[in-house]
Design a protein around this nucleic acid. Structure first.
Lengths: 210, 210
DNA sequence: GCATGTGAATGGATTCACAGCT
DNA sequence: AGCTGTGAATCCATTCACATGC
C-alpha cells in the first residue's frame, strides 16, 4: 500500500507543515499545499489517505493535527538513538550536523577502529568509542539506527557487525552494493552517484542532446 | 528515453565493472553481472542499449571497453570542477571526502559567509574564500557543479547565487524544497528524510504491521 | 549454443475526475 | 459551494520472452 516513495513524501509534507505552522496558518487544503510547494494535490490526498482520514471535506486539513498525525505515522513521536560507525571527516560532520541531530533522533555515540580516536569526542561532545566495543555500545545506548561512515572496503564488515548487534535500520554512506538481510532496512546515500548524475546532465547540455 | 533512475544505475554498473576489472575479469555477461551484484539482467541490457550496442551476442561485454563507454556516457571522461558553498562541518567534510573528490571531479574551493573562515583551508588544502566573491570564484575556477552545504534558511539564496553565477548543476544538502530553474539540474540529498524513512520502518516492526 | 537487444506484457506509481461529505 | 477520499485512466519503469546475430 505505501512505498518508500510515499513515506519520503510524508517527510516532505511534514516539513511544509512545520513551515506553515510557523507562519501561523491553521488550516490548509491539498490545493494550497500543492501550489505553495510544487506538489500534486491528488497525490497529497492519496498519500495522506493511506494512513487515515486526516482532513475535513469542504474545509481541508488542520495544520497542527495533521502534523501530529504525520509525526506519529513516521514513528518520530519518540526518540530514536543513532550510532555512527566511522569517526572520520564524514562521521564527525554527521555527528554535529544540525539537520541530523534533530527532532526524534539522537546521536548517542561514534565508534572507530582507530584506537587513537577512542576517548575523544566530536565538537558538540558526542563520544568516540572503540570499534571493538560496537555491540556493547549498541546495547548500552539502545541504538536503533546505525550509520556507516567508513571506507568502502570496510562497509560490508561494519554492516554485518551492526546487524549482529541487533540494529534493524542502517543508513549507509559508503559507495558499495551491500549484501543485506531481508529483516534489516538499509538506505544508501551515495554521493558519487549523485555527482555522476549531474555530470551526465552537463554532458548532455554540451552535446546539445537536451 | 533515459531517466534519472537509468543513469543512477549506470553509475552502479560502472562501480561493478571497476571491481571486476580489479579482479582481472575481461568479459562479463548481463547474467553474471546480475547474479554477482543482485540486479536484473534484462534491465542491465536495456539500460546499456540506450546508449549504444556495447556487447557482443553470444559472448557478453568486454569489461574495459564497457567501462570506457560508461565513463564517456556519464561525461566523466573529463574533469568537472566543483565548488562547495558553506564551510561548516558538512562542507569541510565533503571537501575532504575521498569518494567525493574522485575520478572526474575536483573540488576547487569552498566559500563561506563568515569572513573569519576566508583564507583558511580544509585539512586536505582546499581553500576557503569569502561568499561575496562567489561569482568570481566560479568564473576563475570554471566550476560547473555547486554544492549547497549551508543552513536551510540560506539555501534558497545560495541556490539563486549559484544560478546567477552560471552554475547549471547543483547538489543540495539543505533540507528544503528549493524553487528551481528549469534549465538547472538540482539534486537534493536529504539526510533527515532518510532517517525518517528508517524510523517509519522501525515503527512498523514495533506495531507488527510489517 | 549462447548472450545481446528489443517488442510485448506486467506491475507500480501518478494523475484525473467525480462521488460523497460538511 | 468546496474539498476530501478514491475508483478509473494514464503514464512510466521493470520484467519477460524471443528474434537476431556471433
Amino acid at each position: 500500500m505505501s512505498s518508500d516513495l510515499t513515506t519520503g513524501r510524508l517527510s516532505v509534507y511534514l516539513r511544509c507543515l512545520n513551515y506553515l505552522e510557523q507562519e501561523g496558518v491553521e488550516t490548509v487544503s491539498s490545493q494550497e499545499l500543492a501550489e505553495k510547494f510544487h506538489l500534486n494535490s491528488a497525490q497529497i490526498r492519496k498519500d495522506l489517505a493511506c494512513f487515515g482520514e486526516f482532513g475535513t471535506r469542504g474545509v481541508g486539513y488542520n495544520v497542527n493535527r495533521l502534523k501530529a498525525q504525520l509525526v506519529h505515522t513516521l514513528g518520530i513521536d519518540r526518540k530514536r538513538n543513532v550510532l555512527i560507525v566511522g569517526a572520520g571527516n564524514l562521521g564527525m560532520a554527521l555527528a554535529d550536523y544540525r539537520g541530523f541531530n534533530s527532532t526524534g533522533f539522537e546521536i548517542v555515540a561514534l565508534v572507530d577502529i582507530d584506537p587513537e580516536k577512542a576517548g575523544r569526542a566530536s565538537r558538540s561532545g558526542i563520544p568516540v568509542k572503540p570499534y571493538s566495543r560496537l555491540a556493547e555500545v549498541v546495547r548500552e545506548n539502545a541504538a536503533e539506527i546505525g550509520v556507516i561512515a567508513v571506507t568502502p572496503e570496510s562497509a560490508q564488515e561494519v554492516h554485518d557487525a551492526l546487524v549482529a548487534a541487533g540494529v534493524l535500520a542502517i543508513l549507509n554512506f559508503a559507495p558499495v552494493q551491500l549484501r543485506t538481510q531481508p529483516r534489516v532496512k538499509v538506505k544508501t546515500v551515495d554521493l558519487r552517484i549523485n555527482l555522476e548524475s549531474l555530470s551526465f546532465f552537463l554532458k548532455n547540455i554540451e552535446d546539445g542532446t537536451l
